[in-house]
Design a protein around this nucleic acid. Sequence first.
DNA 1: ATAGGCTTCCAACAAATGTTGGAAAATATG
DNA 2: CATATTTTCCAACATTTGTTGGAAGCCTAT
Lengths: 178, 178
Amino acid sequence: MRIIAQEVGIDVSTLYYHWGDKGDLYEAVLTDITDDLGSELVRVEKVIKGRPLAERIEIALDMLIDYLFEQSEISNLNLMRFFYKTRHDMAWDARLPVFAADIGRSMGMRQPDGSVATDTKMEVLAIIMAIHNFVSGEDFFSNLFNLGEEAYRKSVKRTLKFIMIPAFAGEYQVTHHS
Amino acid sequence: MRIIAQEVGIDVSTLYYHWGDKGDLYEAVLTDITDDLGSELVRVEKVIKGRPLAERIEIALDMLIDYLFEQSEISNLNLMRFFYKTRHDMAWDARLPVFAADIGRSMGMRQPDGSVATDTKMEVLAIIMAIHNFVSGEDFFSNLFNLGEEAYRKSVKRTLKFIMIPAFAGEYQVTHHS
DNA sequence: ATAGGCTTCCAACAAATGTTGGAAAATATG
DNA sequence: CATATTTTCCAACATTTGTTGGAAGCCTAT
């Protein structure tokens, strides 16, 4: 709390005054970044609408990776939320499965009855996490492979396209859109 | 430190006596789990030796996922190491790129000169992280999708095969080995 | 058995961290 | 302008957490 307050340039009590205790603040931040990510997904959907699937995936990856690299706290906080083990139990956010279902639908992976299967949501989740992983782990991995910021980001895009396009769009040669 | 000592059933000073301070203990644990993971990779390699690539991937995923679900701290600690931002800088472990290179070689992804390209290591890293993600995130995700332990683990295997086999072994129908 | 080492624990210290009371400053309202 | 309300900060508190000194217990070799 002190560190956050200092970063913002206010006293820690002012932080408490406006945002409540640590748990409240954390929840507010999570809600906020989830909203942001939701808006970005809508933006992406608009751009890729109508294109063939493989191209949609490629563009979506490019856009989301760029977006998250600019806001890497989003990836950080999401991953921490998934993996961090707390002694206190945490607030729940039901929007992740909704996002996953939306993305699944956007990729044409709906069932005969229009709903999205759990298997599909798991697959989408894997994509989302893969992006977050590379964004949040930038410090660690770029150091590990001796890549500069630019080279690292490019390699992330290439790697994720290499994996996801064959998996979700079958036969397709990766080209370059960004 | 107190919590660890309590879990082990000793006094916290005894913990210090044997393992040094928190950083030393953390390093020792990381070394230990990395050794374990290394041994498991060797074990996997023995089993899949000589089989066709797609089958190798399938079996390796099954084995590694089972192994990590039994030792989920390995996934936890690895991911934390990748993503956690500390104010103190951390000890470095150079074995991850070696593992990635070994796995890449084992998948036949070596360059003409026998070395393994950074792109390839990134791809392997993506696989490793995907497994860790689902293992470490079990609590969160199984709750999210209302899956029991058994169903969740099965779904993880299916999902990762669904994504990785087309990406790394081209045309291939997923069958069931485990 | 006993001296000397090794191991364990209790108690304490210092620093970090979550949180709040209350005074001062800033702002709004009449 | 005077008053009421809101906002900010300082100082303190209680708890958590990393760490250590020293006494007590245990083990081994003579």
